[in-house]
Amino acid sequence: MITLGHYIVLSVLLFGIGVFGILTRRNAIGILMSLELIFNAVNINMVAFSKFLTPDLVYGELFAIFIIAVAAAESVLGLAIILAIYRKKQTVNADEMNIMKY
């Protein structure tokens, strides 16, 4: 019997891994990919709750669809920005992008 708890624990673990990835990856693209992990963790959460708590209303799933759409849009833009920075600085290491410090 798979309970709601299983899905939520899975979601939380995935979320934790995603946070770890955001805070430690050097490559900027790696950061964005870890961000995708977080989005997915949230999606699992949404859909699981929707299916368990209110089977007739599909609000959770709808919201998950919106999240996917927005996440896609955002990752597109993020990658575009990384490309633009790469053109100027010839690097994608997040360590070296620190001109905001003063």
């Binding site: 673990l13 995935l14 891994i17 995603g18």
Partner: peptide, 9 residues
Amino acid sequence: ILISAILMV
């Protein structure tokens, strides 16, 4: 999922 995620990061 978890193993792939860990390997990914």
